[in-house]
Nucleic acid binder design. Structure first.
Lengths: 102, 102
DNA sequence: TGGACGGTTCGACAACTATCGAACTATCAA
DNA sequence: TTGATAGTTCGATAGTTGTCGAACCGTCCA
């Protein structure tokens, strides 16, 4: 069970975090993670291609919003709940209350 | 005293709002407006050119975050506090608590 | 009437973004 | 070993973004 590098959220510019949230596909991922807690990449149902989804995961990861855990051939992703809450208090509450359209 | 068109925030995609917040210069504007309430464009001290600032104002306006009021030759901008609070409850609290780096 | 002032708009440009399919890597199962 | 499965990475492409200076538009005032 490996876990890879995660950037330091305390030093992450808030603009970078907002940028990561500025795409409907990425918001959809976040919303799913708010319910499911942990998720394999393939479980994120979407119209987009594998490579595009992989790109979005990378953006979220580099912004410090999600982390990845590899177990065999499956990559599980999850939210960095505590660290995000510390960097941007109230963000999760806001995201949970979010109404469509994304 | 004119006031120009403002988009309907209820129909505004949250991703568009997050996008508007994804630039340090625009965050700086928002932070200033949180303190000053109303501001002429020129009062936003910055290193950026007039035209660049005007561009950022436009992005914020089109995302529904600020509104403009013209009085003579001066344009005053201000936050659409109530409507934003309704579309994204808690966003202002979050923005006020924001720590550097932007 | 003619500047000066406060902003916006336009055109240009380099940098970046979302998206895809194809090629690749690593793991598991038969 | 061979093949299937889960994701990542690469290269390409069309579209978007931030930035600037120059030109422009209203408003005010001398």
């Amino acid at each position: 069970m490996k876990k890879d590098y995660s950037p330091n959220l305390k030093k992450m510019p808030v603009s970078a975090i907002f940028y990561a949230l500025s795409d409907p596909a990425r918001l959809e991922i976040i919303l799913t993670l708010l319910e499911e807690k942990e998720l394999s990449c393939g479980q994120c149902k979407t119209e987009l291609s594998k490579s595009t989804m992989s790109h979005h995961f990378k953006v979220l990861r580099e912004a410090g919003l999600i982390q990845r855990r590899e177990e065999g051939k499956v990559h599980f992703i999850s939210l960095r709940v505590d660290e995000i809450e510390e960097r941007m208090p109230g963000l999760f509450k806001l995201l949970k209350a979010m109404k469509k359209p994304l």
